[in-house]
Design a binder for these strands. Structure first.
Lengths: 340, 340
DNA sequence: TTGAAAGCGCTAACAA
DNA sequence: TTGTTAGCGCTTTCAA
């Protein structure tokens, strides 16, 4: 190693090519017609010196930056990272770069991440709020400066528009399916994730409204709660049921604990998930689940950010999910759909 | 909504407070002693106007930026995102901000991500290469400009130092454990992930050297391969074995497929994973696995980046993993260690 | 078509 | 202790 190379500036390219730096700028950006001879000379010099544009200088001068920031509560939730991946692809296509930052489930870090992105003059900000109440200040601060979209967790009364899955439709799809596959006399159980997040709350409420007769257990969005919920069902002496969960991770834990206890799935229990991205493939038998339309949601976010009109009041975009039938489904189409 | 607010500059704060902009700069950064009266006045003005520093201007002037970039092949691998989370925490403590970008498993995108980070004058770059051969150019280009560390996948002959898990030690821990728990006469099978990635190759080679008698099957780093491998074992008429896998996701798929086929784990088969972060908790019975020391590796990366000395040749830092005993372990300490 | 000059917002060297 | 000035690297007037 011979040490680090200092970065080459336009000035140096200009000197090398014997032109002014504005000519270099124009040659590289192609912003203006110019003699082919000079352009080639400039491009060759840039190449020879290994010139790469300093985006800081450009952004400072242009007063804009084609970067969109994404702040996640953490990187460990597979649904969040699936969104990050998809959002990155959609933005890239539209000429934006996506930079992602984790709030580590900490409000202070989230706030600093917001102001750091704002201080970098990013074009827009997408936030999955860490906390549905306390994240509001940071969200509104961002919203005052750049187009800001909140995703997946809805912060009450925030100025920022919200994009998410239409949980009511998702639950309706599930309920229709549940009525088809549940044998007469067997109970239906809903294993939720509390009421702390808007997604969990909306799913739970929609379910309770449509199937008031169902037993409802509440926990959190993780595998361990699925394990515990399964044991709780068994402890209550339930030997067979259709179990609707509010996330695939819960379904996964529940299903494997039931199997470990010797229960047949889907023979004795039918387990239904929610999300359909990330971990849904892990389950065996394949999970029947509601698939969140991650791509459509990403496009909705792009739309809000590019067609941004600050005069329009903050809106809500709900994108409809669809049902993915797994091995728990008894219909022929279920197995066919999974292609196993 | 009343539209977006233009960002307030130091100049405006200075005018508001009736001082010069350098005084504002000093008051806000606390870089120099100054009269308390003026400082308070400046801080009040900044507060009143809602001033937030423009990091672009600062970075351009200071010629440095306390940001470290991380480029992942994709966001869907739980081990990568676990690293991202931990690395973010370690860097934050050290005064750096971590910004993450996904290469979408595409070399072109990876290259653009590298030059974009370089163009933003980041302090250092951490890359999990998308491809162990083809990523070299991008890695070396970065290395010429800023401290650059490659992680998890080792690119041959790259200038950038490498930080990773000591796979040989991990495999030794596994082999020792396997010899303890495998009943006499039962086979040992290694379910690997090919030779395309250095991690997979190193684990496979270490295992083959230590247990040449074992059957080796090769696939890829995903759950589906675990499912297929399990069926292959059963098709070969193997009714019981200790199965060592090269990643937890493979172990997870293998274990659930064996259970679905009615085999007892750990009664008939013992399944051992590798990674110990992200999805290891999903398994039931709990997986015995090698835990990659994500925090120690993150600190090693920080060390390389801060103590960077370009004159020193690129090095390799291997951090030792440890064994986490799951329910497959027959020793009492196994269950105790997991605390279930 | 090209060059000179200004200036984006900030900080640091230098003067007062 | 505070202000003046210069300049980080770039783009974009404005003039030639």
């Amino acid at each position: 190693m011979d040490g680090r190379t200092r970065s080459v500036t336009m000035r140096e390219v200009a000197q090398h090519a014997g032109v002014s730096s504005s000519t270099v700028s124009r040659a590289l950006s192609g912003s203006r017609a110019m003699s082919a001879e000079i352009r080639d000379r400039v491009l060759r010099s840039a190449e020879a010196l290994g010139y790469e544009v300093n985006l800081l200088g450009r952004a400072l001068r242009q007063q804009r930056l084609d970067v969109v920031g994404l702040i996640l509560p953490d990187f460990s939730n597979p649904f969040f990272t699936a969104l990050a991946e998809q959002l990155g692809a959609v933005f890239r296509e539209a000429g934006f770069e996506l930079l992602v930052s984790s709030a580590g489930n900490d409000l202070g870090i989230e706030r600093r991440a917001v102001s750091s992105f704002l201080g970098r003059q990013i074009h827009a900000l997408v936030v999955i709020p860490s906390d549905e109440a306390a994240s509001r200040a940071a969200l509104d601060a961002a919203s005052r400066r750049v187009p800001t979209v909140q995703f997946d967790r809805r912060v009450a009364d925030s100025d920022a528009p919200y994009v998410g899955c239409d949980n009511r439709i998702g639950v309706e799809l599930i309920v229709r399916h549940v009525r088809e596959v549940t044998p007469p006399g067997e109970p239906v159980v809903f294993v939720g994730a509390g009421t702390a997040s808007s997604s969990a709350r909306e799913r739970r409420e929609a379910f309770a409204a449509l199937m008031p007769e169902a037993l409802i257990l509440d926990g959190s969005f993780d595998v361990a709660w699925g394990h515990r919920a399964a044991r709780e069902l068994l402890d209550r002496g339930i030997a067979g049921a259709t179990v609707v969960t509010s996330a695939d991770v819960i379904a996964l834990g529940l299903q494997s604990e039931l199997q470990a206890a010797g229960r047949r799935v889907p023979g004795d229990f039918r387990v239904i998930g929610f999300d359909g991205v990330g971990v849904a493939d892990y389950a065996l038998p394949a999970l029947t689940t509601v698939r969140q339309p991650v791509e459509a949601m990403s496009r909705a976010i792009l739309e809000l950010i590019t067609r941004d009109d600050p005069a329009t009041p903050a809106g809500t975009v709900l994108v409809a999910p669809d049902l993915v039938l797994g091995d728990s489904s008894r219909t022929a189409s279920g197995r066919a759909a999974r292609g196993r």
